Simulated assay, not measured.
Amino acid sequence: MKFFLIEIEYVAPIEKIDEVTPAHREFLQVQYDIGVLLLSGPKVPRIGGMIIAKSSSQEELLDMMKDDPFLKQNCVKYNYKEFVPAKYQVFLKDWLSHSFEKTI
């Protein structure tokens, strides 16, 4: 399993971001439910967001994220950064060590 920090940059007016945010969060919830995502949220100040995710490859993650309403409506740019969790809180061990089943 590979781990990624996805940095989100808003490229649309905040009014458009506000309009699309509920659909974006619904999309993210599906990924939480299958175990892909660990956490997500807006930056402060609100110029984008951050997501911590896992996937078997960056290509698989890119394929999944193409269905994000933010991306489909040209609201954001993504920057993917792969990293290796060398240290972590004990309560994250299960999430870090388990794979997930991709749903279609």
Rank of each mutant, 00 (worst) to 15 (best):
T21G: 00
I52C: 00
E82A: 07
E15F: 02
S99Y: 04
E82S: 05
R46V: 12
L37Y: 09
K54G: 03
S99D: 15
I6M: 01
E19M: 10
I8A: 00
K43G: 03
S56D: 06
G48F: 11
L37G: 00
E9L: 11
S40E: 14
K16E: 13
G48K: 10
V11R: 08
I34P: 00
Q29D: 10
P69G: 09
S57F: 12
H24W: 08
N79V: 01
K54T: 01
I52K: 02
E15C: 02
F83H: 06
F91C: 07
L37S: 04
F83D: 02
K87Y: 13
D63F: 07
I34K: 11
L38E: 09
E15V: 03
M50S: 07
G41T: 07
A53Y: 03
V36L: 10
V36C: 04
S57H: 12
V30A: 08
K66H: 12
E7A: 09
A86T: 10
F3N: 00
D67Q: 12
G49Q: 07
A12N: 10
E7F: 01
S56W: 08
Q73N: 15
E7R: 07
F70S: 02
K54M: 09
E59W: 05
K81R: 13
G48N: 12
W95I: 05
V44C: 02
Y32T: 06
D67W: 04
L39M: 14
W95T: 03
K93I: 10
C75D: 06
F100L: 13
S97Y: 05
V30Q: 05
R25P: 00
N74T: 06
I6R: 00
A53S: 09
V76E: 04
I6D: 01
S55C: 10
P42V: 06
R46Q: 14
I34Q: 11
E82L: 11
I14K: 10
E15D: 11
H98T: 15
M64W: 08
P22Q: 03
Q31F: 04
Q73H: 14
S56N: 09
K72F: 05
H24M: 03
V20G: 01
E101H: 02
F91I: 07
L96H: 09
K54I: 06
W95N: 02
Q58S: 04
D18Q: 15
D68H: 07
W95S: 06
E15R: 03
K43V: 02
I14R: 11
L28N: 13
L61Y: 07
L28D: 01
F3E: 00
V44I: 12
P45M: 14
I14E: 09
P13G: 06
A23H: 11
E7D: 12
G35A: 07
Y10V: 14
M65C: 14
S55K: 02
C75N: 05
M64N: 06
I52A: 01
Y88V: 03
D18Y: 11
K81F: 01
I47E: 14
H24Q: 07
D63C: 05
L61F: 05
M1Q: 08
D67L: 10
Q89R: 13
V76F: 03
Q29M: 11
D33A: 10
C75A: 02
Y32D: 01
K77C: 06
N79G: 03
N79D: 04
E101F: 04
D68P: 06
S40A: 15
N74K: 15
M50T: 12
